[in-house]
Each structure stands twice: as structure tokens, then as C-alpha cells.
């Protein structure tokens, strides 16, 4: 397993740059990963989604689906695509330090 240093902290990541241990995540890491995803500034609306996703993943053991996020965090799918353009499920998972959304194969 590879590691990399993000916002001054060394964390475990997979080949695609997704963190593999959610416990190593910090808000500073989220800021930096968001920039890499083309989001310069995380607003309150972003944080609401990120924080909900972290709680959801803690319960379920996996990154939430879009519907879980829209229902649970109270944002519409359209808004979610505006906040995290082009692939919000994957972007939210990466910024929130959760694994990539996966299928069974």
C-alpha cells in the first residue's frame, strides 16, 4: 500500500489516490484533495455533504451512494453535481477520505 503526504500528514492511499483509512483524514486534507479535484474553496454546502458522508460511511462501512447523500444531507442531485462537478459520488468519496465507490467486480 502506498503512502503520500497531504497537508503535512502521511496517509495511506491506493493506486488512484483514494485514502484507504478514513481515520487518517483531517479537514486540512479535505481542503487539499478538493483543490486536486478542481474545487478551490470548500463552502458550508460542501462541508455539509462531506460530513454527512463521513458519518454515513462510518455506519455502513462504505462510501455513500448519491441517493444516500441527497436524502441524508438534504441536497438535490442537481445541487450535488454543481458542488462536485463531473462525478460527485467519486469526488465526495475522495475528498472525504473514503474508499472509491465500487461494484462487486
Amino acid at each position: 500500500m502506498a503512502t503520500r503526504t497531504i497537508a503535512g500528514k502521511t496517509v495511506q492511499v491506493n493506486d488512484e489516490g483514494f485514502m484507504t483509512n478514513p481515520a487518517e483524514w483531517t479537514k486540512e486534507i479535505a481542503d487539499e484533495l478538493a483543490k486536486e479535484e478542481g474545487i478551490d474553496c470548500l463552502t458550508d454546502a460542501h462541508w455539509k455533504v462531506i460530513e454527512f458522508s463521513r458519518v454515513s460511511a462510518k455506519d455502513s462501512g462504505k462510501a455513500p451512494t448519491l441517493r444516500t447523500i441527497t436524502t441524508g444531507a438534504g441536497v438535490s442531485t442537481k445541487e450535488l453535481f454543481q458542488l462536485f462537478p463531473k462525478g460527485p459520488a467519486k469526488k465526495v468519496a475522495r475528498i472525504a477520505g473514503l474508499g472509491k465507490p465500487e461494484g462487486c467486480v
Binding site: 448519491l66 462525478g87 459520488a89 467519486k90 472509491k100 465507490p101 465500487e102 461494484g103 462487486c104 467486480v105
Partner: peptide, 8 residues
């Protein structure tokens, strides 16, 4: 909706 046909 997934990032690819095979994600593992």
C-alpha cells in the same frame, strides 16, 4: 453510474 465497468 460507477467509475468503470470493473471497479475492483
Amino acid at each position: 453510474p460507477l467509475p468503470g465497468a470493473f471497479t475492483k
